[in-house]
Design a protein around this nucleic acid. Structure first.
Lengths: 339, 339
DNA sequence: CGCGCTTACGTAATCGTTTGCGCAGAAATT
DNA sequence: AATTTCTGCGCAAACGATTACGTAAGCGCG
């Protein structure tokens, strides 16, 4: 027996296991001197309580799960960073899972975690998720769950942390129009993603307000770069009806747009102005620098984690903590300069 | 008692707990019919074995840890993605920890995990890590550990997965020289990072070979953007001795270089050619597109995880699995075009 | 002096799962 | 027919930490 556990400590100190346990947890039932002896030996032997035994007994895992569609994405990376800025201070560990935008995986992962492995979870929905039974099951099992960014508005009593997507969609479109665009297209990823819908709503409202005669131009894209380039190519080749402004719901689509523009020798912003949601710092180095709507990703992570821990600690959530909307920023760069 | 556990199943089926357990694990000792009954009820009640009880009993956690300096970095994101492509297929969960380039945090995290919470861990060292006792302790405790990218060459029997940094450092420098650079500077992050050293070695060798009269120009940078810009500004303002080529060890420093060039109205590649290690897809969209050395990040993650699981499964590692060197790619773009 | 109370610790049950061992009855072997 | 071998299942002891409860000594108090 070379593992150092309570039994080992107890034997070496001629104490009962329970005494050692209590001493280490600083119980008032244990004498000061004994506590010192225990602590000293524990320190010396590098004792670390077995987390599985603790978890089993106390029925809590000191672990939360973060489930995101992908991680190769500045937004989600920053969110994770934000979460990680909170979890360790609470003594919590962070499990990470990727759905790869696949509803089945999302459902399976949630199923997998319904057994006490985690005390709570934070989730940003895959864009193929259109039913929410897997969430409902959690709610009923009483496992705290928080949604962020890509949420589901119809489910009750699940806090959500989002950004002002519709507002920023409106402002992005408005920005393009004020810079002289007469025909703004909205590029968005196919699927059920709540953000694409909210951003599209803002887009539509802005068109409705400033160019009521225009028919909104919703361009559905996919997750495949080649396909997206094809779609964008077709859009921009159409001489007569070519848009002169593009509002991309996600960074990836702005990148695709840039790629096609280079290919077709269209210059931004003269021939086409582009703005996009993006958390990429290097967007400022693009040719030309990309006007961006930057989401407070780190804060989303922090807020989400903070709310989740409140729930885990059974604190009551204030009404305004059930739906938190954090403001994004519009950063104007050369891709939407006057031409 | 509304939790569904073995006891509950056993009671409802009039069986012993052990029988139920064995039935679910498909033991040959259990009759076919009984197995069916058990499985049916388990399915119906949505039974999920308690992972803490299992872990406690079997002394394994079905969990690995990934410890990286940061996550807001395409390289590490891709590595995590690669790891995640393996772990679930082995039934494993992935804990993530960030050191934020802080040795103390790294040490504390490793300390925290020495209690059975994980069956193994994958680590990329912080750049402030210069002693390795915390790793040694793991090796002695017999917990499998794999190093990737930022490794430590002096520790024995810890497999490492790295890229051909010195070789690519050489080729990057060579590339700049062949494109006409007469004075190439090497920008690298301060600290102990093994990659910065290996890349620098390649740089030095190339200078030694092609421009033996030149003194290598090692420019030490930090993690602070403003400071780095200051350093680079100073470097580039020096009219007489201004370098005409920059090889950046990490993406961040290439970004800083671009920023300063914009500021000083230096044009790339005419006034200065730039090449950098970078896994940023959008590097192709920079102004001008950034010549990059792209590391096989996803594969590094996959390989590391594969090796780790071999160790966890107590399989013997082949000699060539103890140090795996994966090739990077040099992608030539406009930032190093002939001027 | 006897009663209760506090202090400081020990005993043992518990969390849920796994697994060595035991033990019937049935089947197969001699 | 007597013995061995399976087959199928139950009993109970782990794993390591936590905690309700028990208990002995020491103390104050009437």
């Amino acid at each position: 027996m070379d593992n150092v556990n309570l039994k080992r400590l107890a034997k070496e100190l001629n104490l009962a296991v329970s005494t050692v346990s209590r001493a280490l947890r600083d119980s008032h039932e244990i004498g000061k001197e004994t506590k010192e002896r225990v602590r000293a030996l524990a320190e010396q032997l590098g004792f670390q309580p077995n987390p599985h035994a603790s978890s089993l007994r106390q029925n809590k895992s000191k672990t939360i799960a973060v489930i995101v569609p992908e991680v190769e994405n500045n937004f989600f990376s920053q969110v994770i960073n934000g979460i990680e800025s909170v979890a360790p201070t609470k003594g919590y560990h962070v499990l990470i899972y990727l759905t790869h935008e696949d509803f089945k995986k999302e459902r399976d992962i949630l199923q997998l975690l319904r057994n006490g492995r985690v005390d709570g979870l934070m989730l940003s929905l895959s864009n193929t998720t259109s039913s929410f039974g897997h969430l409902e099951a959690y709610r009923q099992a009483g496992i705290p769950i928080v949604l962020f960014d890509r949420v589901c508005e119809t489910i009750e009593d699940v806090p959500m942390i989002i950004t002002d997507d519709a507002e920023m969609g409106y402002r992005a479109t408005e920005h393009l129009i004020k810079k002289g665009c007469n025909r703004v297209a909205y590029l968005y990823p196919a699927g059920e993603s709540s953000i694409a819908i909210r951003r599209g709503t803002g887009y539509q409202n802005a068109i409705g307000k400033y160019q009521p005669k225009q028919k909104p131009l919703f361009i559905e894209c996919s997750t495949n770069d080649a396909q997206n380039q094809q779609v964008i190519r077709k859009l921009l080749r159409n001489k007569k009806e070519r848009p002169d402004g593009i509002f991309a719901a996600i960074e990836k689509l702005a990148v695709n747009t840039y790629e096609v523009c280079h290919e077709l020798n269209l210059s931004i912003p003269q021939d086409l102005k582009v703005i996009s949601f993006s958390n990429l710092r290097a967007a400022a180095l693009f040719h030309p620098p990309l006007s961006s709507i930057v989401q407070p990703a780190y804060e989303i992570g922090r807020e989400s984690a903070t709310i989740l821990f409140k729930m885990i600690e059974k604190k009551l959530l204030l009404p305004n903590e059930k739906k938190i909307i954090l403001p994004s920023k519009l950063i104007e760069r050369a891709s939407t300069a006057d031409s």
